Simulated assay, not measured.
Amino acid sequence: MTAPGKRNLITDVSGILVGQAEDSAVRTGVTVIVPDRPAIAAVCIAGGGPGTRETDLLTGGRLVEGVDAICLSGGSAFGLAAADGVASGLKTDGRGFSLVAREGVPATPIVPAAILYDLANGGDKNWGQASPYAGLGLDAYRDAGSSFLLGRAGAGYGALAGVHAGGTGSASIMTDDGITVGALAGVNCFGSVRMPGTDAYWAWPYELNGEFGGARPPADFVMDPEDWGGAKVNPALGQNTTIACIATDLSLTQEEARRVAQMALSGFSRAIRPVFAPFDGDAVFVLSTGRVDMPENWPLMVARVGELAASTLARAIARGVHEANQEQDV
């Protein structure tokens, strides 16, 4: 029987830590996912307005397949600078890629990144000559641990999910044969995460142990294909995005990780409506820590982990929004 991990966080995956940092004045933040050693990684981008860094390395056939961290940030394009701070912290700790070790030549940390747009969601954005994001990235890296806050925290600190507060969410699942899959999402979507006229989340069929409130749609609920519920009414280009990371301890090749990422995209559509719009920058990374060997029936196992990734990501999205709005109601 599958069940959430001990923390119900992406850090239930062995070898994964998460750090976060926020700037309350700017109303923004950064989340960093840090494997304890270079991890196989892949990415899939589905939104029409993405903002990313180092994702070309993850397309296959490149020199480097392992990454030292994944950085998720608010701040739109300014937030890509958060990866600079993460890279600085990794360099100080002696981490990074070197083709040939040479004295006096530092290794290069590999830090793919994605951003969401929170520039119009409040806060003082008059930060002068230098944005705060490199500093936030370093602070988030230094904060990395096994526990972290959900809701208004990290990359989702200044986020909006449709007309509701957005946030950072996470969830995990463990199988009876020892595979763990975790998801983390920064939710700043154009679409609604709740069913129209109800307190139920679109992701309710995947909820485990009442992790995002346990609300269910009424028995007589009728789906209207044109009723999006609490979506943003007049979106502008580039002002929405859900960015996410999946981690698993199953040993995956980069091509297998890419397939898991493609399957994980359906987690977005299970939790948000509409999704992958022209003004969304939706993206999902996948990390494999390689702690569990891939069995011989690898195609079936990849399909199985991809489905677990999708349902766990849907839970993480709903959980992040639920936690953010619980805080707002207090």
Rank of each mutant, 00 (worst) to 15 (best):
S192E: 10
D176L: 04
M195G: 01
L184H: 11
V181C: 02
T198C: 10
A171R: 12
G191W: 08
V181K: 00
C189P: 07
V181H: 01
S192H: 04
T168I: 07
L184C: 12
G169W: 02
G182C: 00
T175I: 09
P196A: 14
G191A: 09
D176W: 13
V181L: 02
G178N: 11
T198M: 10
M174C: 10
D176F: 09
G178S: 03
T168W: 05
S192A: 15
S170D: 10
C189K: 12
T175K: 03
G167I: 02
N188I: 13
Y201V: 02
S170Y: 03
V193R: 06
G191S: 13
D199N: 15
S172I: 00
L184S: 07
V193W: 01
A203P: 01
G182T: 07
I173N: 03
G182P: 00
T180I: 02
L184P: 12
T168R: 01
A171L: 01
C189V: 12
T198W: 04
D177Y: 04
G169F: 01
D199P: 11
Y201F: 15
T180F: 00
V193G: 11
V187W: 12
M174E: 12
G182A: 04
I173H: 01
G178C: 06
G169E: 04
W204H: 15
G182Q: 03
V187R: 05
D199A: 13
A185G: 14
Y201W: 15
A185N: 13
M174L: 09
S170L: 09
A185E: 14
T175C: 06
A200T: 01
G186V: 13
N188F: 12
G167W: 00
D176I: 05
